[in-house]
Computed example of a mutant assay.
Amino acid sequence: MRKPLVMGNWKLNGSIGMAKDLVTGLRNELSTDANCGIAIAPPSVYLDFVAHQLGGSNILLGAQDVGIHLSGAYTGEVSATMLKEIGVTHVIIGHSERRTYHKESDEFIAQKFGVLKEAGLVPVLCIGETEAENEAGQTQAVCARQIDAVINALGVQAFNGAVIAYEPVWAIGTGKSATPAQAQAVHKFIRDHIAKQDAAVAEQVIIQYGGSVNDKNAAELFTQPDIDGALVGGASLKVDAFAAIVKAAEQAKK
């Protein structure tokens, strides 16, 4: 039985004060939750502060990105070993915003995946199609290509202990969300695609849904057999909404 993971991606939002209030609220709301993994990914400048705020709680610390180098003359980069040293366990890579604004290729993202695995961190690999690709019937082809970049570079075993977040780009921050049936169909395709290489790896890999997940639509999404939690954007900045999503994941997988 896969344990779902609900992860909050704060993106470029927050302050010291907000981080403190948000973590305090989450600790109060989620102190006894054990049937669902919980993680939050604040901006990198707040990681160490949030790590201390989370001390002793069951909430994991995530990061929003990682560099491919461990050290050297790479101004502005943050390495996997640096993230690990301050308590990060999960790292988001391949988010559509990185792919779009920073022109990150599938192959470059696969490099990041490998660096994280080497460091003993959990990659949270975002995949998903744009609205144009969706309308052209290319959803499966896009997801397969993005997954295959990792398999081709590292082998299918790299997905052991990893997380995939299916985030249709047309649903991120738009208020639109795939229906539970639509999302389940893509999640099943992703799992089946990996199973062609290794059924055991496919069975254990966590596949989250992301894209305008909120406290209103989460429960129905989580009842789907191949949806293992969520990567949450805007709703992760609100204690009540994020806590409700976590509790919906717990309830659905009991």
Rank of each mutant, 00 (worst) to 15 (best):
V78Q: 00
S79Q: 02
A80C: 09
M82H: 09
K84V: 08
E85Q: 15
H90V: 10
I93P: 05
R99H: 10
R99G: 08
T100G: 10
K103F: 15
K103T: 08
K103S: 12
E104T: 13
F108A: 11
Q111R: 14
K112T: 02
G114S: 07
V115G: 00
V115C: 04
L116K: 03
L116C: 03
K117A: 00
E118D: 15
A119V: 07
G120R: 12
G120L: 14
G120C: 09
V122H: 00
V122W: 03
P123T: 11
V124H: 06
C126H: 07
I127W: 05
G128E: 06
E129M: 09
E129C: 13
T130M: 11
E131V: 11
N134K: 15
N134I: 13
E135M: 12
E135C: 02
T139C: 12
Q140Y: 13
A141M: 12
V142C: 09
C143D: 11
A144K: 10
Q146C: 06
I147N: 03
D148K: 12
A149G: 06
V150W: 02
I151P: 03
N152Q: 15
A153K: 12
G155P: 12
G155M: 10
V156N: 02
V156I: 10
Q157M: 13
N160I: 14
G161H: 04
G161C: 07
I164Y: 02
A165Q: 08
Y166M: 01
P168Y: 10
V169I: 15
V169T: 07
W170M: 04
